[in-house]
C-alpha cells in the first residue's frame, strides 16, 4: 500500500466555537500505480482529506502512512515527501507568482535542489507534458496568459518536480468542455505512460467514471461508498441521497435494465454503452 489512512480524523479550529469536524475516522488505502477518484458533495471533506497525503495538515487523531511509515514520525522529511507526492490545489492559477513561466515552473524543482541544465530539462518536461511549447512560453509572464494556459502552467510546475503521486483537487473546475477533455486526456496519458499514481478529486461523475479504477465517495466527512466505478454507481439510490448523481450514461443503462432489458450497467464511455445498447436492443432484444 502506497498511501494509507488509519482512523484518520481532522478538526478545524478545535476548542473554539468555530470548531468543525471535517473528517471522521477515515480508513483507506491507495495502491501504487492506481487511478483513484474521490467524489462527494461540496464541504464533504475531500480537500481536507487530500491535504493530509503530503503533510499539509496533521490529523487530529489517527495516522497517515506513506510506504508503511507514519509521515508524522520524526524520521520523515516533509519537504522531500512533498516533491514525491505532489498536490495541485483548486484554482492553481492563483499560485503563480514569478515574472516568467520558466521561473514559475522551476520553483518546485529548484526547491528540491536542482540547478542549471537539469532544472531547465525538468521545466521543459513539465511544460511539454501539459502540451505547452517550451520555446514559446518560457519567457512569457504568467499573468498575461489565458485562464486555461495559467492552469496548465501551474500543473506543469507540479509535474516538473517529477512526482510519483499526483493529487488533483477539482482540476477542471471552471474549464470549458474542450479544455476539460484535453486536460483529462493528458492526465490519463501520464498515468498510462509514466505509471503515475493519480488521485483525482471531483464532483463531476462523468469525468471520473471512465478514468478511475477505484472510487471513494465522501459525505459529511465520512466514506460512504467505495469500490470500482461499476460497483459504486450501482448504488444509484445512495449516491442521489447524498446529493450527487450517477453519470447520465449509467442512468440510461439503469433505466433500460429496469424496463427488463438484459443489459450491462457498468460501462462508462459513450462508445461502449452505444455498442452494448445496439447489441442488446438491436438484436435479440428488439423493442
Amino acid at each position: 500500500m502506497l498511501i494509507e489512512a488509519r482512523n484518520l480524523s481532522y478538526e478545524y479550529m478545535p476548542g473554539t466555537p468555530f470548531q468543525v469536524e471535517a473528517l471522521k475516522n477515515i480508513t483507506l488505502g491507495i495502491e501504487k500505480g492506481s487511478f483513484v477518484g474521490i467524489i462527494g458533495e461540496t464541504g464533504s471533506g475531500k480537500s481536507t482529506f487530500v491535504q493530509h497525503f503530503n503533510g499539509l495538515l496533521k490529523p487530529t487523531s489517527g495516522q497517515l502512512l506513506v510506504n508503511g511509515k507514519d509521515i508524522w514520525s520524526h524520521s520523515i522529511d516533509l519537504r522531500a515527501l512533498r516533491t514525491k507526492i505532489a498536490l495541485l490545489f483548486q484554482f492553481p492559477e492563483h499560485q503563480l507568482f514569478e515574472e516568467t513561466v520558466f521561473k514559475d515552473v522551476a520553483f518546485g524543482p529548484r526547491n528540491s535542489g536542482l540547478k542549471g541544465k537539469e532544472l531547465a530539462g525538468r521545466v521543459r518536461m513539465g511544460l511539454e507534458m501539459m502540451g505547452l511549447d517550451y520555446e514559446i512560453y518560457r519567457d512569457r509572464s504568467p499573468f498575461t496568459l489565458s485562464g486555461g494556459e495559467k492552469r496548465r502552467v501551474a500543473m506543469a510546475g507540479i509535474l516538473a518536480m517529477s512526482p510519483e503521486v499526483i493529487i488533483l483537487d477539482e482540476p477542471t473546475a471552471g474549464m470549458d468542455p474542450l479544455g476539460r477533455q484535453n486536460f483529462l486526456e493528458q492526465i490519463e496519458r501520464l498515468h498510462r505512460e509514466e505509471n503515475l499514481t493519480v488521485i483525482l478529486v471531483t464532483h463531476n461523475m462523468e469525468e471520473i467514471a471512465c478514468l478511475a479504477d477505484k472510487l471513494f465517495v465522501f459525505s459529511r466527512g465520512k466514506i460512504v461508498l467505495q469500490g470500482s466505478p461499476g460497483d459504486v454507481f450501482a448504488s444509484a439510490e445512495q449516491i442521489r441521497e447524498i446529493g450527487l448523481d450517477v453519470p447520465s450514461l449509467t442512468r440510461l443503462l439503469q433505466e433500460l435494465k429496469k424496463k427488463g432489458k438484459n443489459i450491462r450497467t457498468d460501462l462508462f464511455t459513450a462508445e461502449e454503452a452505444a455498442a452494448e445498447i445496439l447489441c442488446r436492443l438491436g438484436g435479440r432484444d428488439r423493442l
Partner: peptide, 10 residues
C-alpha cells in the same frame, strides 16, 4: 491556501 499551495511545491 496559497501558503499551502507553495508548500506543496517545496
Amino acid at each position: 491556501k496559497i501558503r499551502k499551495a507553495q508548500m506543496a511545491r517545496g
